[in-house]
């Protein structure tokens, strides 16, 4: 306990009180900042980098001008809407402190394990009655294995059901030692089975991910913690016939009988602009559209034909 310098505290993007999509029952979700992957389609691009970032939402701006006055680097250019010069910005966040409308927000704050626990314990009665609990997500919670471990342990002490959403790229021994004893359910992403494809679209190869997944799956089969694979369906990238067939075959080969397929949701796309990033996702790209239900049914059938149950989301 106490402040040991080797204990790394992650920055927390948000503790979202009530989420419908991140596990069974009513759940609160803790979003960690930082991820070892760099997926092209990431819905939370502000969660990729470990460091704190500045988010500016022009629609919230009321033109008070306080930020322009407060910025020591003159990095905010007045106008309607005003513009943040990212090259000049040193991320001191003084503008955030004076912004009346929260148009300027700091993404990623330090929170202690107790801070987080205090935030979610009021919801315990709802967790209990709905079979819900707390989900660790982000970003990637396993980047901060010790912190995550302590948090999960505290939550379990409070009688709260815990779930970890992970990309699967972590040290297996560390995970087994620190996470497994305190988690009730694991969601792991299985984005692309093909190594080259995974490297191209996610920034790194997938051999460790696949290895981790199979080992955890085996442990589950022998009475360990349940692990559920999930695949985001990104049009033209992860949902191609080849990709899907490869995934189905992979599951069949290893005796995996259930998978979640998550339909692309385009509503996150303006986040790039808000954190000052550029994207080369073209305006005409199908990533801007809600997922085509007909295509989904076609893919579902592909899996069901291999004897794999599909959970739709």
């Amino acid at each position: 306990m106490g402040s040991d310098k080797s204990f790394k505290r992650p920055l927390v993007i948000d503790v979202k009180g009530n989420s419908l999509d991140d596990g069974p029952g009513t759940r609160s979700v803790v979003f960690f900042k930082g991820c070892p992957l760099d997926c092209y389609w990431c819905q939370n691009p502000e969660s990729k980098r470990v460091e704190a970032e500045l988010l500016f939402d022009g629609e919230k701006c009321v033109g008070s001008g306080e930020c322009v006055k407060a910025c020591p680097e003159e990095a905010i250019e007045p106008g309607q809407p005003l513009r943040v010069n990212r090259d000049k910005c040193t991320l001191c966040f003084q503008c955030v402190d004076v912004c009346p409308s929260t148009a300027l927000e700091r993404v990623g704050r330090e929170m202690s394990v107790e801070d987080i626990v205090k935030k979610v314990t009021p919801y315990k009665p709802f967790f209990k009655n709905t079979g819900g609990g707390v989900t660790l997500s982000g970003g990637e919670p396993t980047l901060f294995m010790d912190f995550a471990s302590r948090l999960l342990k505290r939550l379990r002490e409070e009688g709260i059901h815990t779930l970890v959403e992970t990309c699967g790229l972590f040290n297996f021994e560390s995970f087994t030692e620190k996470i497994l004893p305190h988690v009730n359910l694991i969601y792991m992403d299985m984005k692309i089975v093909n190594y080259e494809g995974h490297k191209r679209w996610c920034g790194v190869g997938n051999e460790k991910i696949i290895e981790n997944f199979l080992r955890l799956h085996e442990m589950w089969r022998k009475g360990g913690v349940e692990i559920k694979p999930r695949t985001p369906l990104i049009p033209g990238i992860t949902d191609t016939d080849d990709s899907m067939r490869a995934l189905a075959r992979f599951y069949k080969e290893h005796g995996i009988t259930q998978t979640a397929l998550m339909k692309n949701n385009p509503t996150w796309l303006n986040k790039f602009e808000k954190i000052g990033l550029k994207t080369d996702i073209a305006k005409e790209s199908p990533i801007h559209e809600f997922y085509d239900q007909e295509r989904f049914e076609y893919i579902r059938k592909m899996f069901e034909d291999e004897g794999i149950e599909v959970l739709e989301s």
Partner: peptide
């Protein structure tokens, strides 16, 4: 408007 936004947020 700044005052109002401050109160609301």
């Amino acid at each position: 408007t700044g005052l109002r936004a401050w109160i609301q947020n």
